[in-house]
């Protein structure tokens, strides 16, 4: 993106159309500076059935957005959807070292929740913390700095 790291591109690959949105971040505000849409060919019910025509459609949508925003797009945030995505809840439990919860403890509990048995053909896309439970006290969203001994965390994967 020509050294402008403040530009962000969202790419939505849908079954009927593909749309690329270029946003510029400036001081906490987001300016939309370019939009490109192109009818999507090669997708059926949210799943790619013809990869070559999908690539062509994406290229065209991105080109349109590039023209509108006057920039070169090199990386995007892409969406994922389809009947093959599932979510499930998991728990991570760790003991706290010392008396206060630190950033490191949060990372460790995330790691623990990630370590669930999933089939070989699947992978974890998101770990979304739902709540942290410190010493039976539930509903905590940001636990850093709290005191406790053992804690667990609920997740959706």
């Amino acid at each position: 993106m020509q050294g402008q790291d403040k530009l962000l591109v969202g790419l939505d690959v849908g079954t009927t159309k593909i749309c690329a949105v270029v946003g510029e971040v400036s001081g906490g505000e987001i300016n939309i500076i370019g939009v490109g849409t192109h009818p999507s060919i090669g997708l059926h019910k949210g799943v790619v059935v013809n990869i070559d025509s999908t690539v062509e459609s994406i290229k065209k949508a991105v080109e349109e957005a590039e023209l509108m925003a006057g920039c070169e797009i090199s990386s995007v945030y892409a969406g994922i959807a389809g009947g093959h995505i599932t979510g499930f809840n998991s728990h991570g439990i760790v003991a706290i070292k010392g008396s206060e919860v630190t950033r490191h403890d949060v990372d460790r509990v995330l790691e623990a929740a990630r370590a669930v048995a999933i089939p070989m053909d699947r992978e974890v896309i998101h770990v979304l913390p739902q709540e942290y439970i410190v010493d039976e006290q539930s509903g905590i969203t940001n636990p850093v700095g709290m005191a406790g001994v053992g804690w667990k965390q609920k997740f959706i994967l």
Partner: peptide, 21 residues
């Protein structure tokens, strides 16, 4: 969001804008 609000102020672009946000 700001900028081309008129263009993206449409449910069609919800996912695209959401990805940028």
């Amino acid at each position: 969001i700001k900028g081309l609000v008129d263009v993206v102020n449409n449910p069609m672009y919800a996912t695209g804008v959401g990805l940028v946000l």
